[in-house]
Design a binder for these strands. Structure first.
Lengths: 234, 234
DNA sequence: GATGATGTTGGAACAACGTTCCAAAAGGTT
DNA sequence: AACCTTTTGGAACGTTGTTCCAACATCATC
């Protein structure tokens, strides 16, 4: 009983001690509950009952903070994956994991779309590459395919995050899509026949399902082009 | 006096008169020459030899300004396309047009990746949809495929723009990619075998070529899954 | 021409932000 | 106790988007 209080006083001295982990955790809470625009160093300092200057002893900048927060979410996604799947299923699992993470934390989508060279994307790209290798994709095509998958996800990340940003309080995504559909339906019929025709299916569609459809499309392309025969549709 | 009929005689009053077109034009010049961070209402007012307040009589907000500038560039791309092409070639032409526009104006990439619901993306999506229809893609798959192509482009747009932002003055993109490659080569071999192996080909690769490879991949997937013949490469 | 009405201009002012600075406090070591 | 290092927290700085408002220009009407 008495042995527990031996060393490491530093960690236990003050329960409210500041640390990068605690700051990132508080930042994620603010981002999740009040949105990206609510994350300011003043709001963060207020929540942690400290001053802005103290935060800068643990965090280099706001960019550093957002990067760390994104990293936290993405590594959580990648470590939670079941290994040993069939390559195609594994790729879908990775993609869906990122999608769900962005669905739960839309600010991650903004961050990934805006800073795609940050560390957080590397585990995703690595995961794609490994599975493509397992799929039998050869040489430089591996990187092309992995990059295509990643770009597709990053594009959707930005789109999804922007949608949430436009909602700004409205929790109903269907209502948002209905608004977009209305705008599409009012477009010039001569210039936008396709969008006018596609508008009705916009509010009804399932984001997650369409996302997976895109992944399957790319996977089908990979299968078609990387096999022994080259399907030149000319 | 009840005489207040508007005659809408918005004639040209002065040659140096302010207008939304002139403001957008000046904004594009600043964005192109000095980068996205250089575009402030003060810098814009200085370049147009006026005050910030005057600008707000023609432009609602900075977002409005960026949206208008992006629209200007994208409509320029879409109207410059030669019609009557074969569908697959037409899709590639649209994609390459957007890619080249982002290459020439990296801030367009930022804008598209960040605000994908703005008007500027609609002509692109419409173009894809029309060509897919011509390709014989049926029903809801049209929208899935068009959306996949668009998301891929938007993801690459953000990635490309972020790369330029990180360069910040260095004109050599190869040098930037070499830096990234070095960082990849230093990764943990146990966790990142694929990226370490892919690193050497990073500085050498052609962005435009890889971009087209991704488009071809998606097109191959479309052909494989939606055509009359199903190329089951199993 | 003079006169209002209407819209434009330009610069000062405001609130908010990220960031820096620094004096006080806390903690650890001798 | 005395000293040094790290941490804290709040004030202050410079910059941003935006608003406000007094001066100005333009034009239909007297």
């Amino acid at each position: 009983m008495v042995v527990m209080v031996t060393k490491t006083k530093r960690a236990e001295r003050r329960t409210d001690a500041l640390s990068k982990e605690r700051i990132v955790e508080a930042a994620i809470e603010i981002l999740d509950t009040d949105g990206e625009s609510a994350l300011t160093f003043r709001a963060l300092a207020a929540r942690l009952a400290t001053g802005s200057g103290a935060l800068y002893h643990h965090v280099a900048s706001k960019n550093d903070l957002l990067t760390a927060a994104t990293e936290e979410v993405i590594t959580g996604v990648m470590t939670g994956l079941a290994p040993g799947d069939e390559p195609r299923a594994a790729i879908q699992a990775i993609a869906l994991g990122v999608f769900d993470a962005i669905d739960a934390h839309p600010w991650v989508g903004t961050q990934l779309a805006q800073e795609p060279w940050q560390f957080a994307v590397l585990p995703v790209l690595e995961g794609f590459g490994q599975q493509l290798q397992a799929l039998g994709v050869l040489g430089p095509a591996q990187f092309d395919c992995a990059s295509a998958l990643l770009n597709y996800i990053l594009g959707l990340a930005g789109q999804y995050a922007a949608g949430v940003r436009l909602l700004a309080g409205v929790t109903d995504r269907t209502a948002f899509l209905a608004t977009v559909a209305d705008r599409w339906a009012d477009l010039d019929p001569a210039r936008f026949p396709f969008l006018r025709q596609a508008a009705p299916q916009l509010p009804a569609h399932d984001d997650r399902e369409q996302f997976l459809a895109g992944i399957d499309l790319i996977l089908a392309g990979i299968t078609a082009t990387s096999g022994s025969r080259r399907s030149s549709a000319r």
